[in-house]
């Protein structure tokens, strides 16, 4: 069975960048969301195996998504991919349960390292 992936970013370009960086085993069943609200709508109704999440977004931002997942006890590995690289932001994100924080522009090696350490590779 393929791994179900959700990519949430308000930028079409950024979504494509993530999609293009995914290894083959993660790129067959991918859904896209352009803000936190869209992502939550999907996550509340479907089983998703891994979420790639941007932070600075309209409607509901990445922190809002992480908080909602925590409140609603929706458990899945979340990899945050963000340009907001302040150490405090990284701490906040990890405290809210994200598995990894990846800086934009995303480095392929770093992504693969994190995927490997969480058993996706």
């Amino acid at each position: 069975m393929s791994t179900r992936v959700l990519i949430c970013d308000d930028s079409n370009l950024a979504r494509k960048q993530v999609l293009r960086s995914l290894p083959e085993n993660l790129s067959t069943d991918v859904q896209l969301a352009k803000d936190g609200q869209e992502a939550l709508d999907i996550l509340r109704n479907q089983h998703i195996d891994i979420l790639f999440l941007d932070l600075t977004m309209p409607i509901i931002d990445g922190l809002g998504v992480l908080q909602a997942l925590k409140d609603e006890e929706i458990n899945l590995p979340v990899f945050v991919i963000s340009a907001d690289v302040q150490p405090e932001m990284q701490n906040r994100v990890l405290a809210l349960g994200a598995k990894a924080f990846l800086r934009k522009p995303m480095q392929l090696d770093t992504l693969n390292e994190h995927l490997k350490s969480h058993g996706f590779l």
Binding site: S11, T56, A83, D84, V85, K104
Partner: peptide
């Protein structure tokens, strides 16, 4: 517009850092 916004996002992230 989308591409420019993403370039700006990355730059403002580092400036804010």
């Amino acid at each position: 517009h989308d591409c420019l916004q993403e370039l700006i996002n990355v730059a403002m992230g580092q400036a804010s850092d």
